[in-house]
Computed example of a mutant assay.
Amino acid sequence: MVAPRHTKVAVITGAGSGIGLACAKKLSAAGIAIVGVGRTVEKLKELERVIDKPDQIATVAIDVTWEDAPQRIVQVALDHWGHIDFLINNAGVGSPKPLHEADDDNLDHFLNVMLRAPFRLSREALPHMPAGSAVINISSTFAVIGGLRGGAYSAAKAGLDGLTRHIACQYGASGIRANSVAPGVIYTEMTESRLKDESFRRMNVEMTPHTRLGRVEDVAGTVAFLCSDDGSFINGQTIVVDGGWTSTKYFSERGRTSVWT
C-alpha cells in the first residue's frame, strides 16, 4: 500500500553502519521515512530495530555496484511510498592506496562504488523526485585536497563532487537540489584501524583546530539540515565537515614541540 504523498522519503545507501546509520536515525527522528540500503542483512535488521517504526522503514540488502541495484532500490521506495524526496549516496570503501600502488582492479573498485553507483542510482531516482527534493552525496576532504595515499579514492570522490554540481545545474530549475557533504576523518568501522596508526592520528589530531575529531552525528546533522526547509536555498555546494582541517594550516602546540623520530 502506497502511503500519502505528504510522507517525506529518504533513500540512504550504506545505511547499516557509520555515517549512513547516523543519517537514517537523524532523518527518521525528523519524521522522514527511510529506505536503508546495505550489503549486510544483519546490519539492516539492526537498522530496523533502531528506527523502530515499521511503517516508516524499508530495507534493501544489495551491493550498490550490481547492475540491477538502481532499479531494485528505487522500486522499493515506489512500492512503499510512491516517490523519493531525498537521495543520500553514502556507500563507500576505505583503505586507499597511492597512485603507484593502485592497480586497475583497485581503481575500478573505488570508481564503481563511489562514482558509478551514485551516478546510476541518481539517474534512476530523479524521475521520481518531485520539486523540493534533494540529492546529497557524501564526499570527502580527500576530494578537496587530494590527500596522502588518496589515489583512486580521491579521484572517485572528486568525480562525485563534479556529479553533484552537474545535478544542481541541470535539475535545480526543476526544484531538485544537489549538494556534497565532505567529512574529515570520522570515527567509524572503516576508519577505526587507520586511527590506531600513530602517524595517521598525528596528521589528523595535531592538524585539526578543534578539541576533537569528527563524529557520525556531525555529518548526519549537516545532511539533515540540507534536507530541511532551512537548507532549501543551498545548491551545488560542497560542505566540508572537518573541524577546520582542510581550510587551515593549523599545527598543535604538542605537534610543534614534540620530539619526532
Rank of each mutant, 00 (worst) to 15 (best):
S199P: 00
S199W: 01
T211C: 03
V185I: 15
I186A: 06
E206I: 01
T188C: 07
Y187Q: 08
E192M: 07
L213D: 08
M203S: 14
M207D: 01
S193I: 05
V185F: 10
K196Y: 00
T191A: 09
Y187E: 13
S199F: 03
T188K: 00
N204Q: 11
S199D: 12
R202E: 13
G184K: 01
D197K: 11
S199K: 12
N204W: 13
N204L: 09
L213H: 04
R201Y: 12
E192C: 04
S193C: 02
P209Q: 12
E189D: 15
T211R: 07
M207S: 10
G184Y: 06
F200H: 14
V205P: 01
R201K: 14
R194H: 06
S193N: 09
I186W: 00
P209F: 10
E192G: 01
L195M: 15
T211V: 14
S193E: 15
N204S: 03
E189P: 07
K196D: 00
T211I: 13
T211A: 13
H210M: 11
H210W: 10
R201P: 00
F200R: 05
M190L: 14
S199H: 10
E189H: 12
E206R: 00
M207Q: 09
L213V: 03
I186S: 00
F200V: 13
Y187K: 12
K196F: 00
G184D: 02
P209C: 12
P209E: 12
E192W: 09
E206Y: 07
M207F: 07
F200D: 11
M207N: 14
E189M: 04
Y187G: 08
V205A: 10
M190Y: 07
H210C: 11
M203N: 15
T208R: 00
R212C: 10
E198W: 08
D197M: 02
V205H: 04
D197W: 02
G184R: 03
M190V: 08
E198K: 15
L195D: 07
G184W: 02
M203F: 13
V205N: 08
T188R: 01
F200N: 09
F200S: 05
T191I: 01
F200G: 01
H210P: 05
R202W: 05
T211W: 02
K196S: 10
R194C: 03
E192A: 13
H210K: 11
L195Y: 08
H210D: 09
S199Y: 08
R202S: 11
L213N: 01
M190S: 05
P209G: 12
S199T: 06
R202M: 12
M207R: 15
V205M: 08
V185L: 14
Y187M: 14
R212V: 14
M203Q: 12
P209K: 11
E206M: 10
L213Q: 04
M207E: 09
T188H: 05
Y187D: 15
Y187A: 14
R194V: 00
I186V: 14
